[in-house]
Design a protein around this nucleic acid. Structure first.
Lengths: 219, 219
DNA sequence: TATGGATCGTACCGTACGGTACGGTTCTGT
DNA sequence: ACAGAACCGTACCGTACGGTACGATCCATA
């Protein structure tokens, strides 16, 4: 039956193109705009193929999440030596990337989709989104924090608590407000300043040495 | 036509009962479970009345938000004199209330509803939810912070920035994860500890005097 | 060239929902 | 007691969607 080596968790190029079209429809018009007939028409494929490839509509949604997650594989931070400035720059990069990702069209559309389905009983979309999307981010940040701690640049007792605090300092209430579609919240041109401010405050809370440098003016 | 004094922005008791039933349906089964026929059946009213009262389905959803918001009117903090301990206690109360509200069944259901509709073009639900729900919280916190600043208990340049930082320290990524339905995130028994920790960190960032009291052990 | 699998386009089916219409009933004001 | 409004329960309509079926077409392989 299957002598081909594990083509199970990946998709054919054709299927990837269809999934991209599906993401496009979802971004434009939300879940209501993502109908099987509409996707078949937009992607020039047949509904029968959709059901053959993804099982049913829920399978399609799950495949969309898996597909999108496979595209934004977390880059691995190079193992270069860490001094304080470099560590801080990495944190600011992380903050910028986090805001960029959370505020992206695809991320917002998928999160809206998963949240809208979260009330339904057997919906695994939320878990899928966290598992495939958030865990990569969490790992990257966790490794970064751990490296900083081992270098003596920051100190904490509970790494998870420190990480979630950093997350809160960066994201604040922006994510939910963007998800709600509040006007004037998505301002990518402000992300850099928000990232700097968040990292400054993170160092005030978790910096290993109380170095009162150029920080006071920013706060 | 209307000699009754402004019964416009409120609802009759019957309508309130129907709206409560609607909230119940929404909490149980999500948006898909909130159908006009289902609501009419559950609330023992006719579909015709629903459309007469609320116009259409979107009007019903908006009315649900307005109704729920009218129930949780923000209590006014008593104007008693503020010392540091009392101020801190008020902040912890605020943090606890915030976590309690955001993690409540009704709030989660309404936020999921508004987020699910956010992609549709003419949807005002998100704005309504922010306007009717969040602004009250924001005002309460803003007044509290301002009082603390005027008493010299904290200091900041930008009140909004300080407030959003406090919000981020309290909520972290909990809200979105609860909205996604992640298992094991809703732990009301942990709210108190989270609130204390958040307020501690807030004082580290914005406390007026660097009083290194009993804080170091908590961080 | 023949053959079989994969895919496309279209048509079809059952269902469920939003919204409307209508007759019967209860409530209210005079 | 009576009139009118509000309301209930039910039936009805049009539409749109998820899912299936089927003939036609493309394409790889022998």
């Amino acid at each position: 039956m299957r002598h081909k080596p594990e083509t199970q968790d990946t998709f054919t190029p054709r299927q990837r193109a269809v999934l991209d079209k599906a993401l496009g429809l979802l971004m434009e018009g939300g879940e209501r705009a993502l109908t099987t007939a509409g996707l078949a028409r937009a992607a020039n494929c047949s509904k029968e193929s959709l059901y053959k490839w993804f099982g049913d509509r829920d399978g399609l949604l799950a495949a969309m999440i898996a597909h999108q997650a496979s595209k934004v594989r977390a880059r691995i931070d190079s193992g270069e030596r860490l001094d304080l400035d470099r560590f801080r720059a990495h944190l600011v990069d992380f903050a910028n990337d986090l805001l960029q990702v959370l505020g992206g069209d695809v991320s917002l559309a998928l999160n809206r989709l998963a949240i809208g389905q979260a009330s339904r009983e057997g919906s695994r979309l939320g878990a899928l989104l966290i598992e495939r999307g958030r865990h990569g981010i969490d790992k990257r940040a966790g490794a970064l924090l751990e490296a900083g701690r081992q270098r003596g640049l920051i100190s904490y007792n509970d790494r998870d608590s420190a990480y979630h605090t950093l997350y809160g300092l960066i994201v604040r209430d922006l994510h939910v407000r963007m998800l709600l579609g509040e006007a004037g919240v998505r301002r990518p041109e402000h992300y850099a300043a928000l990232a700097e401010e968040a990292v400054d405050r993170f160092f005030v809370l978790f910096g290993a040495r109380e170095n009162e440098t150029t920080r006071a003016d920013r706060l």
